[in-house]
Every structure is written in C-alpha cells, then in structure tokens.
C-alpha cells in the first residue's frame, strides 16, 4: 500500500493531540463513580515510576544497576513534568513539528544513523538497557488491589546523584506508563531514535518479555504514527506477537507488509523464523 506523502503526513500531524488534562480525567472518574455507584481506585495515572515500582519494591533500589537508578530518576522526573506539560507546549520540539519533519515511509530500507548525542538531557543519558530494567507493565486485570495513589511521585536525589530515594507508587505499569516511558527516552521521531526503540524492544524480546516489547513499540508508534519503521521494528513487533500467540495479528501484519514492501519481505521473514511457526509465515503470504 502506498504510504502517505510527506505533505499529507505533515497535514495530518498538524492535527492537535487532543490529550485530556488531569482535571478531565478526574472529572470523568468522578462522574463514572457516580454512575456506577462504586469508588474507582486511582492508579497509575500520575506515575511513570509505576514502571519501576515493582522492581524497586522487590529487589531494593540499592540492588539496581547505575543505569537502572538513572532510569528511575529520568522516569520519575519526567512524570512530574510530562504530565503537566503537553507536547504542544514545548515550542519547537512539539510533536506536530516533529511529525511535520518526517518523511513518508520509504519504499526501500532506510540507512539509519545512530544519534550523535544522547536524547535525554535531564540527567546523564540512560544506557540502551534503560527499557530492559523496567519491570513488565502487568496487564491491568492482573494488578493487585492498590491503596490510593499519591498526587505525584516524590523523587529525592541526594547529591551528587548516587542514591536517589524513590517513594514507589502503588500502581502497576500501564499503557500510559509506556507512553511516558517512550516520551522520556525516545523523544524524537527520527530514524535513529526509532532504531533505538526497536533495539530496546529486541532486548526485551530476547529476555522473554515479548509483551513488554510489543507495548514499547506500540507506545512509540502512538507517539510517532508517521514514522519510517525499519525492518527491525517490524520484525520485533511481529516476533513479539508470535511469542504472545497473537498469530492472527501477525498474519494480518505480514500480509500487509508483504504487499507494501515486497523487497523487504525476505529479510523480515528470516528474522521471524525463530519466533513464528511455519504455518503463520505461510499464511502471511500476500
């Protein structure tokens, strides 16, 4: 299928992200509670740190690697700022402008170049394993009962930086957590950032965390819907779906991918052979 042209993509990316505010969320929650006659526990909304709370609680912060500690600080700090500040208020770094700069999906594989400098500037840049140290975003259904959530995560970083103390929020990771995670660590929609996100997802996949890998790529795609999408990103996504048993989605994606990028099909199929059954790959013929 022919992708959108640069002009059309830019036009669509000009549409404002209609994100709700925390007031919107609280207001609807209140009305919902009234309609249902139950109290809905507040979980996961304000805390990007939820992504790391479980690990911090079970293994102790001191047991984490330096990279993980840095990740905790980055995620927590970004929570405080990101929840309050919309993308569109960032001036020249807003989502719309980033998307407006994007080229359409290329017909041929794109040579991706590593960024020359770190993407995250709040604290020393997290290593690539940043995502890998984040505990899996448990499905909301599986979440244990949670006490009321604090208004915002409290992060105290002792000088110089060594031992930040994090008050772990009670909520489990959520889709929104992944959105915030991606926003903090993969803020741009350029090919190099996309490749980094795909590589992080690959690490999750290799660590038998297929669900996390799919969530990460999904969050990145929500952030950069008109991105280029390298073979690596497609391979990891489909491999993750195969490992999760979501074969129908893989077949659909593979059929689409094969029709859209016939020249790239062979490379992706090679990557998928270790994760997907032959039956799935055969059904994925265009």
């Amino acid at each position: 299928m022919k992708p959108l042209s640069k002009e059309a993509s830019a036009a669509l990316s000009a549409l404002k992200a209609a994100d709700p505010t925390s007031e919107d969320e609280a207001r609807v929650r209140k009305n919902l509670e009234r309609a249902l006659g139950v109290a809905i526990p507040v979980v996961g909304v304000a805390a990007a740190t939820t992504a790391v709370s479980a690990q911090a609680a079970t293994t102790g912060f001191a047991a984490l690697s330096l990279g993980a500690k840095v990740a905790l600080v980055v995620v927590a700090v970004s929570t405080v700022s990101v929840v309050a500040v919309s993308l569109s208020s960032r001036g020249g770094e807003g989502r719309g402008e980033e998307q407006a700069k994007q080229a359409p999906k290329p017909e041929a594989p794109v040579v991706l170049v590593e960024p020359s400098e770190p993407e995250v500037a709040v604290v020393p840049p997290p290593p690539p394993e940043l995502v890998a140290v984040v505990p899996p975003p448990a499905k909301p259904r599986a979440a244990p009962p949670k006490p009321p959530e604090p208004e915002a995560p409290v992060v105290v970083v002792e000088a110089p930086i060594a031992e930040p103390v994090v008050t772990p929020p009670p909520a489990p990771p959520t889709a929104e957590t992944w959105d915030l995670e991606v926003e903090a660590n993969f803020p741009n929609c350029d090919p190099a950032t996309e490749l980094r996100s795909a590589q992080s997802a690959r690490k999750l996949l290799d660590a038998d965390r297929a669900e996390d890998a799919v969530w990460l790529l999904g969050a990145y795609q929500r952030r950069c819907p008109s991105g280029r999408w390298s073979d690596e990103a497609w391979s990891v996504r489909m491999a993750g779906l195969c490992k999760l048993g979501r074969t129908a989605e893989v077949v659909g994606l593979l059929q689409w991918f094969s029709a859209e990028y016939p020249a790239r099909r062979a490379a992706v199929l090679t990557e998928l052979r270790s994760s997907c059954s032959d039956e799935v790959l055969q059904h994925g013929q265009p």
């Binding site: 994100d19 609807v28 996961g44 979440a143 889709a175 929104e176």
Partner: peptide, 25 residues
C-alpha cells in the same frame, strides 16, 4: 459479576487517555 474495582481502576488509568483522544478524533 461486577469487575474488581482495582482491576477496573487500572483499566481506566491505562486507557482513559487513549479513549478520550480517540473520541475526539
């Protein structure tokens, strides 16, 4: 059977933003 409120709270927290955005879109 009604859902567990904690599970439902997690569902709400995880998806409210996307639901809101999609409705406007």
């Amino acid at each position: 059977k009604a859902p567990d409120t904690a599970d439902f709270g997690a569902l709400y927290a995880g998806h409210f933003r996307a639901v809101w955005r999609t409705l406007q879109r």
